[in-house]
Write a protein that binds this DNA or RNA. Structure first.
Lengths: 367, 367
DNA sequence: CGGCGCAACGGTAACGGTTCAGACGCGGGG
DNA sequence: CCCCGCGTCTGAACCGTTACCGTTGCGCCG
């Protein structure tokens, strides 16, 4: 209503002070330290501000002076919009947002192009700290973040970096449990579906070289857990087909499951490194008329709501807690000890998508 | 590895320039305009930067000088974490994020306390513009945003504000269609479940005064659409029970449906102003052993994935497109015409949760 | 050899605030 | 009467950077 939006030359703290014949300090105090000036003068300042359309101290200038931006930056490997698409990421972000709003801090989603190595966005972000969510170890954006002189918390990143706090789960141990569950049921021919392992857009079987070169710690550890668990049951990892998908979507999981089963019809179980992929595998099974779990056992990882609703056998990880812990680690730095590491518990959820394989397979030594 | 993280006095562009014996401008150019200085000198600058642990130009100082923050602020009424919990909001944000990443802009989630009128977070946000998503007309944060001298786009807000672009749908017309669908099926005793209408934490029946005082335009228009549609079939709005819920969750919808049916057992249909509430109503029906749609028709609004999976009769609105449009309106301001308004299309989805009411009701004049 | 144009670089002034150490009057206690 | 303390308000120094414009050096042409 008031013509405050179309002022030619925007008012500044200085112009306001000049107008009133007081010092800049006084105007500043009117906003930030009401007890430092008399009430009548403060009222005069605020009235003049309204009259001149002065919107209050400029946040950027204030940030420069106070060395506080009032925001936390979030870096994730995927495109920005991925944060709202993937349920596990969404849960993490909800927890992170919770911590942020408690601390009165904003949350800046840093725009990164997953392919492009353009780190200007990281350089451009005016933030008090970064949360890095599940990125490649050699991600250039990650590297750029570490160069910034602000505190950083990484999530799902076992690599120890000087001065960087960490939060995550024990992916390997969790997956080891799941592997034991599978071998305990008697499965011996198991296929694996995993997410992106490294740089470059690749879809298909992941051979040993590719697995060993994996730069996503989460995927590496989950595969490692499976390997260890299978080894305990005397199953050689070399005989386990692992199929990788660049995209993380139900569709990708479906396609990967089709590819895997076509190449290895003897398989009685598919272990997926994420619920999303597992949901895709379930869809493929339904499409092909395979009964789950009678004909085929399918397991996931994460414990996303949709997976749990489907009765998926999976590992539930506290994604929301992870986000909250990351935020708190970053924001509540009252106790400036040394870098800390938070490892959150996981839980094996045995649903209705895993069972003893059909008879020809029942050769396990138990009972 | 290099001791760049624990430098006592952080290096600045000026200190680097002093160290090298060149001007600050030259160092600045080394980063921002590589073509403005010779390659060897640039290499020397960058090398010295690495050696001194200079992380590159400070983003906040740069923002102050260039008057660009490289980020868009998002304001929503609910708590920050709500953005990741509500599927409609998530869709909107995904679209907005898409637009942001295309423009290389960050997305700053501004932390607001829905109850508290603390607008400092709005003042503190260093952004080039705001997107305001579905807030009360009299929201103090919204007011604070309008006072900031940056472009603003509002979503789902028919109120015209000078210089503010808008994006949304025609809630009233969409709901009118849905009302016609219900009356066309023969429903005459219809209950309504709606979201928060105004200030204050209130759960229960919303009388006329409360409906007319509604400060959430979206809710007001959806109710208005129902009212108009019912009027066309000769149904007096005064006889329509409307129940309101403060919280927007499936649980809230479930409780509200229970309350509504307890108070009005003659109801044959429940029209909800959101899918989330409708999913709650569905859950209540299942719990009480009511067959849907045979015993009870239930409709929603939004077209969220979970609703569509459930076969919910609803109105699909392009939430992702809304977000993208909002972002583009804000970011692609090449054509500085006058403020614009984008109204996106909606679609009535007739699912499996709406049908002709049981016989005693079949008195409508058709055939 | 002088003038000219261009590439490379430097100096100065913002950008809009916050902060800290006082200055200034004023009333009260010694 | 002097000194002190207190409530208010001011001056000036930053915060770290980029925009603007002037300067310098060099090669080239007539």
């Amino acid at each position: 209503m008031r013509g405050s939006r179309d002022v030619r030359r925007p008012a500044t703290l200085a112009s306001l002070a000049a107008e009133l014949g007081v010092s800049r300090t006084t105007v500043s105090n009117a906003y930030n330290r009401p007890d430092q000036l008399s009430a009548p003068l403060r009222a005069r300042v605020l009235e003049a501000a309204r009259r001149l359309g002065y919107p209050g101290p400029d946040p950027v200038a204030r940030s420069l002076r106070t060395r506080r931006a009032g925001a936390v930056g979030l870096l994730l490997t995927e495109a920005l919009s991925y944060a709202f698409r993937d349920p596990a990421a969404t849960g993490f972000l909800e927890g992170l947002a919770l911590a942020c709003e408690r601390a009165g801090s904003g949350l800046l989603l840093v725009p990164v192009s997953p392919e492009l190595a353009d780190v200007t966005a990281v350089h451009q972000a005016g933030v008090d700290g970064f949360v890095v969510y599940s990125v490649r170890e050699d991600d250039p954006h990650f590297k750029a973040v570490l160069e910034r002189p602000v505190p950083t918390v990484v999530c799902d990143q076992p690599l120890h970096v000087e001065g960087v706090d960490r939060v995550g789960i024990d992916d390997r141990a969790a997956m080891l449990d799941l592997a034991r569950h599978l071998t305990g049921l008697g499965h011996r021919h198991i296929g694996v579906l995993c997410m992106r392992l490294g740089t470059g857009r690749y879809d298909g079987p992941a051979d040993d070289a590719r697995q060993n070169g994996a730069t996503y710690p989460v995927q590496r550890n989950r595969l490692g857990g499976l390997r260890d668990g299978f080894a305990e049951a005397g199953i050689d990892w070399a005989g386990i087909p692992v199929h990788e998908r660049f995209a993380h979507s139900v569709d990708a999981g479906q396609a990967a499951a089709a590819e895997l089963l076509a190449a290895h019809p003897e398989i009685t179980a598919i272990a997926c490194t994420s619920d999303i992929l597992a949901l895709g595998a379930l869809r493929h099974a339904a499409e092909r008329g395979l009964a789950v779990p009678e004909d085929l056992t399918i397991t996931g990882f994460d414990g996303v709501p949709e997976g749990l609703r489907s009765g998926l056998t999976t590992v539930r990880q506290p994604v929301l807690e992870k986000g909250r812990a990351a935020g708190e680690l970053l924001l509540e730095r009252g106790d400036r000890n040394r870098p800390r590491t938070v490892v959150l518990p996981t839980e094996l959820i045995v649903g209705t998508t895993s069972a003893v394989p059909r008879s020809p397979e029942r050769w396990f030594s138990g009972w």
